[in-house]
């Protein structure tokens, strides 16, 4: 049922796009030196030095990159609808899974040294300069009166990392599901805005709204690099954000070489400069501007939860927590809590 719906929708979209699409599709394989990179927005700046370094390698000599950046979910849906892509790099595994379901990415895409992950970060608290409210832990965030901004987990896939980090704070530390529900309820009660994306949430926060912004470490570092007057706190227990990358089934060898290069020490050092935690060991990291301590930019939290260990992977977590309850979809726990806290707030 769901699959036919998807197919019909995709067919109608491609049908509409077919006329304009002719000019851009095709042309991928014949050159052999053009690599189409389809990635989530933040990678636009982060990829530049990686592209430069790749061009310096044997495999990457004379390569031309055709890039496309945007919201992770939109990018993935565009590829399903026929957008040309060799290397895909998304903020959330479910966006790659969507391509696997359409036969655009091989089933075994996670079979490599990093389990398909190309960049990583952690969920952090962005606070006002000097941390006037003394926000250090998750419990400080849900104190009554603290105003929270976090991107909308409904419309932004990557925002889901933040909410799951809060959930993991309870269940990962031995709490029950009931306690986690209560915790998320107080978190949502304190939430004053759910902007559409991580960047919009940062904009709303730097513009003066809210006491704490739930965000990603790389986003916080980037904001500080661009001069935002903020600080950020890595909580003692937080969730590891893992951004998957892979190649599409008809990608050329250069694209495959680039995918491998993305997880090389050289590329990981480049990504670190943009605030991403390396996904492999033994990466030489220069001082990272914008980090709390540029010389030790990525301090290890006391407890680091992962989506696989704490939540049994995205395949299970996506529906269990964020399902919208429409049609055949189950009603996710977070969706349900959002509805109940929203209604209470209305009265």
């Amino acid at each position: 049922m769901k699959k036919t719906t998807k197919a019909a929708m995709a067919a109608s979209i491609t049908g509409v796009l077919a006329l304009t699409g002719c000019s851009t599709s095709g042309g991928g394989d014949d050159a052999g030196t053009t690599v189409g990179v389809n990635a989530f927005s933040v990678m636009e700046a982060a990829n530049e030095p990686v592209f430069d370094d790749f061009e310096g390698t044997d495999a990457g000599a004379g390569v031309r990159f055709q890039t496309s950046y945007g919201a992770s979910g939109d990018q993935s849906r565009a590829v399903v609808a026929g957008a040309d892509a060799d290397v895909v790099h998304y903020s959330l595994e479910t966006d790659v899974t969507r391509l696997v379901g359409e036969g655009l990415v091989a089933e075994d895409w996670k079979d490599n040294d990093t389990s398909g992950i190309a960049t990583s970060s952690v969920v952090v608290f962005v606070v006002r300069k000097g941390n006037p409210d003394g926000i250090e832990t998750w419990d400080d965030v849900v104190e009554p009166g603290v105003e929270i901004i976090t991107p909308n987990p409904g419309s932004s896939g990557s925002a889901r990392w933040n909410i799951l980090a809060a959930w993991a704070h309870i269940t990962g530390n031995g709490g029950s599901d009931e306690e986690a529900r209560a915790f998320i309820t107080s978190l949502l009660t304190n939430t004053i805005a759910l902007p559409g994306s991580g960047r919009e949430a940062t904009t709303a926060f730097t513009d003066g709204s809210g006491d704490v912004l739930l965000s990603y470490e790389n986003e916080a570092i980037l904001a500080k690099q661009s001069g935002a007057d903020i600080d950020y706190v890595v909580p003692p227990d937080t969730l590891l954000i893992e951004n998957p990358a892979t190649v599409t089934v008809d990608a050329n060898d250069t694209a495959k070489a680039f995918l491998a290069f993305m997880t090389s020490p050289e590329a990981q050092a480049d990504y670190a400069q943009s605030g991403f935690r390396p996904v492999i060991d033994g990466v030489e990291i220069d001082d990272v501007a914008g980090a709390n301590d540029p010389a030790d930019p990525f301090p290890t939290p006391q407890v680091l939860f992962t989506i696989d260990d704490t939540f049994n992977g995205w395949a299970e977590a996506a529906d269990l927590y964020f399902g919208d309850g429409e049609g055949d979809n189950p009603l996710g726990i977070i969706t349900e809590l959002q509805q109940t806290t929203g209604q209470v707030g209305e009265e």
């Binding site: 559409g196 959002q338 929203g342």
Partner: peptide, 12 residues
């Protein structure tokens, strides 16, 4: 998307 806060039941 930036201005309203997108809170369910209130500004969504």
């Amino acid at each position: 998307v930036l201005l309203s806060g997108n809170r369910p039941f209130q500004t969504e």
